[in-house]
Design a protein around this nucleic acid. Structure first.
Length: 274
DNA sequence: ACAATTACCTGTATGC
DNA sequence: TGCATACAGGTAATTG
């Protein structure tokens, strides 16, 4: 499930394939995945535009286009954006095909159809619901312990739920939230405001380390995630707690536990995380 | 203003 | 074997 490191990896793998490519034609096989504008306008407005560069904001992928337009993608759970070299048959659940020159294409594939594509003018990007209310980028150098402390201050919700709230910090999902709280040695159920200064500093460091490791490993492929070239990442081999209920804690050997927090399964070590 | 809950989706795993 | 059910979870919308 694409979180910040996965979307960053997709951005990096797609960039050399898509830069300066012209979109010749757009086929929409499932209109429901186009959030805005309507599916016909989506195709019509995209045709003929040249991809200038790719960007990421939180879990959103931004494909900047000539003529001050931008294609925005959110892959949610099972969405994939993959670059295809030749005339390969359409994979099941292919909902949109962006045809490029020379038989190449960019394809949006999403089994569960949670993912959404938006086309917007550059000027209206800041007003897109979702993008508009995103919190700061956790890998921004400006995101220091003081910035994190300000976000946590006065919040009584469990720290994990605060980390998952995209309006407070952008890009963190269920897997990396569990991993960074383990790395910081903090119980995911603790009220956010109960963290002292030292714990906030530790968490901020853990957030950056865990996200950077995820990017270095090209993302976590547990079920569906693949990068822009269709390749899996390797970070699933480095997970310490996520999906490891009952197995020994890598630090102390105590069996890892799972609880439900805000409807999400939450994995942690009852001894190391206090 | 904030917090908790539900709808959206389908493939996979599990229980009987 | 076949069927029903649970589960995965990010976000928008809804309810409290």
């Amino acid at each position: 499930m694409p979180e910040l490191p996965e979307v960053e990896t997709i951005k990096r793998t797609l960039t050399p394939c898509l830069r300066e490519q012209k979109i010749a034609r757009v086929e929409v096989y499932h209109p429901g995945v186009i959030a805005a504008p309507g599916p016909e306008a989506f195709s019509r407005l995209l045709a003929g535009r040249v991809i200038t560069y790719l960007d990421r904001r939180g879990k959103y992928l931004l494909v900047h286009l000539s003529g001050e337009y931008c294609l925005v993608a959110h892959l949610r759970m099972t969405g994939r954006l993959v670059f295809i070299e030749g005339a390969a048959p359409l994979a099941p659940h292919t909902h949109v095909v962006f045809s490029l020159a020379g038989g190449r294409s960019l394809r949006f594939v999403d089994t569960r159809r949670f993912g959404r594509l938006y086309l917007a003018g550059e000027a209206e990007l800041e007003t897109l619901p979702g993008l508009r209310d995103l919190g700061p980028e956790p890998l921004d150098p400006a995101f220091d312990a003081r910035a994190l402390g300000a976000i946590l201050a006065g919040r009584r919700r469990p720290i994990k739920q605060v980390l998952l709230d995209q309006r407070l910090v952008a890009g963190i999902g269920n897997i990396y939230a569990d991993e960074m709280l383990f790395a910081a040695g903090i119980d995911p159920r603790r009220p956010a405001a109960s963290l002292n200064q030292e714990e906030v500093a530790r968490l901020r460091g853990a957030m950056q380390r865990v996200l950077e490791q995820g990017i270095a490993n090209h993302g976590t492929s547990i079920r569906d995630y693949v990068d822009g070239s269709g390749r899996q990442g390797s970070n699933q081999e480095h997970l310490q707690v996520y999906g490891r209920t009952g197995r020994p804690c890598p630090r102390c050997g105590q069996p890892l536990e799972r609880v439900r927090l805000g409807g999400r399964s939450t994995h942690f070590c009852p001894r190391c995380q206090v």
